[in-house]
Structures are given as structure tokens and as C-alpha cells.
Amino acid sequence: MVSSHKQTNMRFHVLCAAIILPLLTTSVSARFFPNAPSMPPSSPPNATTGGWDAFKRFAGCHAGDKADGLAKLKEYFHYFGYIPNSNFTDDFDDAFEQALKTYQHNFNLNTTGQLDDATLNQIVSPRCGNADIVNGSSSMNSGKSTPSTSGHFHTVGHYTFFDGKPVWPESKRDLTYGFLPDNQLSDTVKAVFTSAFERWAAVTPLTFTETDSYYSADLRIAFYTGDHGDGEAFDGVLGTLAHAFSPTNGRFHLDNDENWVATGDVTKSSISSAIDLESVAVHEIGHLLGLGHSSVEEAIMYPTITARTKKVDLASDDIQGIQELYGSNPNYNGSSTTPSQESESTNNSGAYTAAPRWSFGILLAVGFGLLML
């Protein structure tokens, strides 16, 4: 017969196990998607430690100069496709000057080849993690004539495509999309992506349907932090916000460390680093469908967006580009895209927050302490 003291101890241990084991399961999941490992050398500098803002100290640098830390800025240019090699020094050499001029041209800046204030302000802006130049080819600001309905060429587009111009095949005109289950997104947050997809559906023959089967979906949406295994590590608050892969890969990743705003007026947010979720979603969906970056600042496919900015309406440049790939929606009237619907906030600040991430070490320590009582 078991004594009452032993029975009490057994009940207590069972209770501890019932409390702790589910938490340990959660921590294993969190460890499977690392929170903030060190970034590989090929990744852009960490914006959370002032990495990008620190570039402003190079103001006035020009060809022939040598500045301590300039190699880190060259890494930035390498990451976004402007410099092909990765063996960097702190010398402001001819190759870097040429890369800088190409960057300035792409972003409609004066092509001085110098690190002037306007250029540096553009460099430190939050942006999409996709490269502006792929395989040495840049067409962001090349300009291309587009025909009118009468057959005459009268407008200039700056939309671009991925190398090889990949698209979803005609057999895939109803694309499915799903969300990584581990993120445990609310219906309110999911509705933001629905609205973003509708903007592209409004101008093309494509349709988008949500599915609960994430792993079999055509388009797979997930929030990650740091290095998440695709060679495109995230870098914390601001810096690179998200990235997406060309057709028919379907992967769309967002940096979970951002202060995402899913509802309300992001322009009035009290958080200086607040980023509008739908604005970024519309941009990255453009990549999922085959569009590259545009030099038109009003376009959704422009690479950067400042904090506390909402930009969700497709510009004519976006529409011309996507319709060159897929044709037009028969019901498209040639005006604006579908407006988003306002919905309830996911938390008091309106910022997106993922499921809690538990510290494995802390839980073990707490569990051990309880068991020793």
C-alpha cells in the first residue's frame, strides 16, 4: 500500500509533468525555427544594431577614398545584386563607384557616383529582401514602351521580370495559398493577405483561394526570424522586411521581428518602426507571380517602403507588368484595384505578434525547481 506522503509526491510530479511537458513541446518548435542566430556574411548588416543607419557616416565619400567599414556597405550592394564578387576592402574603388551609379539610376537619384545624403537616405530605408539585379542584369529603370488600345506606343513602363521570365502555367489560374501552422495567425491577420491577393486578382485572370493544407499550397506564407534555412536570413527590426521567390517556387517569407500593423491607420502608429502588413504583402505577391522590382516610386514593386506608410494600390506600372505576364481580367475596368477592408486589431497596438516563443533553458530550470520542492 502506498503511503499518503508518497501518493502526494506522485500526484505533484504528475501535475508538474502535465504543466511543463506541453511547454517543452512548444520550445522544441521554437528551436526548430531559430530566433536570432548570427547572420551569414552574405546577408545585409543587422538593422537592429544600427547597421544600416551607420552607413550615413560615409556621407561625402567618393572614388579614391578609403573609409573604415566601407566593406560592409559593399556587402549591402552585393546582397542586392549591384556587385558580383564578395571579396571586399574599405577602398572606394572603380567597381564600387559603378555599382553606386547603377543604384542611383535605379532609384531616380542623381548619378554622382558619390555617397551623398539623398543616396544614403535611400540605402537605409526598409526594403524588400529580393535583389534589384539578378545575374548582372538590371532593368529597373530601363524604360519600355507599352501599347495603347489603338496599337500605338505612348507610355513607358519600368516593371521587370525574373531571369527567364517565369510564370505560373495556364493550368494554374486558380492558385491556392496557405499559412505556416506554427505562426498561429488570427483570422484578422489572414484577411490582410486575402485583401492583398484580391488586388492582383482584380487586374488578371488569376484567382487565389486559401487552403488549410500549407505544405500542398501553391503559395506558402510564413513568418520567420533570423536564418530560416533558405539562404536569405532576416535581420531584425527594419532592414529587410520580407522576400518571395519567383514562379513556381511559391515561398513567401516575412520577418517576424518587424512591428507589423495589420489593422488601423499605420500612419498614426505610435511605433516609429511600424510596418503596414498589407503594403508588404501586395509587393511580395507581385514577386510570387513573376514581377521584379520597378524604379517607379509610386509602384507597388518599388523596392523600399518607409515605416508608418501605407501603399496598397497597384500603379499603372504594376498593372502593365502583370498583364504582360498573364493578360487582363475580363472584368477589369482600367481604374483602381480592390480596396482593403478595415478589421479589428489583433492586439492593443495593432501590431502583428506571433505565438509566444518559450525559452527552453528557462523552462527546464523552472521545471527542475518545481520537481525538487
Rank of each mutant, 00 (worst) to 15 (best):
D94G: 03
E75C: 13
A30L: 05
S345Q: 08
N141F: 12
T207S: 14
P84Y: 05
H78M: 03
P330Q: 14
L325K: 12
I271E: 06
S29I: 11
H13L: 15
T111W: 04
G321E: 09
H78K: 08
T209R: 14
S295C: 06
I285Y: 01
I271Y: 09
R11I: 04
D257M: 12
R220Q: 13
H253I: 02
D68Q: 15
E278K: 04
S186G: 15
L185C: 05
D313T: 04
G229V: 03
W260C: 05
A196Y: 01
H228F: 14
S328T: 15
K101C: 00
T194H: 09
T353I: 10
S273W: 04
A307T: 15
L288H: 00
T194G: 14
N331L: 15
A118D: 14
L73R: 05
T89C: 09
P339G: 09
G136D: 08
Y215F: 09
D212L: 04
E210T: 01
G226F: 09
S316Q: 15
S3H: 01
G264M: 03
G369S: 06
L291H: 02
K72M: 11
A71G: 05
D182H: 12
P84F: 08
S125R: 14
K66N: 11
A222H: 02
A201S: 12
H5K: 12
F77R: 07
A201I: 03
